[in-house]
Design a protein around this nucleic acid. Sequence first.
DNA 1: TAACGAACTCAACTTGCGTTGAGTTAATTG
DNA 2: CAATTAACTCAACGCAAGTTGAGTTCGTTA
Lengths: 183, 183
Amino acid sequence: MILDAARARFAKEGYAGATIRKIAGDAGVDAALVMQFFGSKDELFGAVMSITPNALSHFSDSFVGPEHSLGERVTRAFFEVWEGDPEDSEPLMAMLRAAISNEQATSLLREFIQARLAKALIGRLPNDHAATIRAGVASSMLVGLIVGRRIVKVPALVGEDTESLIGIIAPAVQAILSGEDDT
Amino acid sequence: MILDAARARFAKEGYAGATIRKIAGDAGVDAALVMQFFGSKDELFGAVMSITPNALSHFSDSFVGPEHSLGERVTRAFFEVWEGDPEDSEPLMAMLRAAISNEQATSLLREFIQARLAKALIGRLPNDHAATIRAGVASSMLVGLIVGRRIVKVPALVGEDTESLIGIIAPAVQAILSGEDDT
DNA sequence: TAACGAACTCAACTTGCGTTGAGTTAATTG
DNA sequence: CAATTAACTCAACGCAAGTTGAGTTCGTTA
């Protein structure tokens, strides 16, 4: 399937690195066919980028439960999606990689962090300005960990299993979401 | 100056996006001259990427002081460097942007997070395995905030002034560095 | 079985890139 | 002033990319 090949390539090599010819090759097909189906590389990319319903519900579910363990549930859900089924994580990875070099991807990732994650959170927390900001901060921090672990491959993060990381990160996420600050 | 133009372009547009022709144009010079000076695009990029001594000492200094405000000092130093003098922040931005698509940049950023930041931290904390990991986690989280604020431009982060963000983030960084976890 | 349309290939075009080598200006120095 | 070197431009190469249009296979349907 062309879409599968495209998703994997965009996730691994970013927007510029993934060429139509390579994607077509992976799918055992001529590059011109990809063009006929999707019109352009941009449109193919748009078709690939998405947040799967499964990933979304995973995030949403994590907000249900006692507040004292909110940070841990959110952190765990985040890792489960980003390091779980490629079907769910590859579109996210494609967005993240491409967001650095492609404007279209940037706005999609922006919408993901802001609208989706924040909206899911706001139902569970005071729906005010501060909650939105805290949601944005927590999301960006968690994305930063994915960047470190999966893209930059910081040894300290790569060599650690998910549970240990969650043990370290969860309290920090909790601190942000529950709003114990200095101001 | 060619190096100034290159630094700005790499920081704004990443490795692939910044072309030799555009850099040469910014510097009011022919592309061929850039080649004669630096040999190749890779070497030009290598000449641009760096952590300035000023940025480094900024980070180091932030570890000096009482432990209960360590998180706040580190967070503040981080923002001061990344949002301060372009002379210091642009090479970092160039590294970060390029790290997604260029292998050479990936290892440089890896070294930055691991060797430099972590090493500076380890002098101040128990020099064990756990401290290295905590340093990696904190660094990646902070980088994630830069990604959100400066690259993806998440509205919640862009619209907030630095001090408010530090107030939210510092306790989380403190939680990670001081080691109050769940395990 | 004939015909139609979808799925697909082939060869080529265009553009922009990094890069090169030969040539030109400008500055330095003996 | 002559000459050597450094700073620089020009025109072009080769390549890989996205894209195109004409042609081909092939399964479905009348």
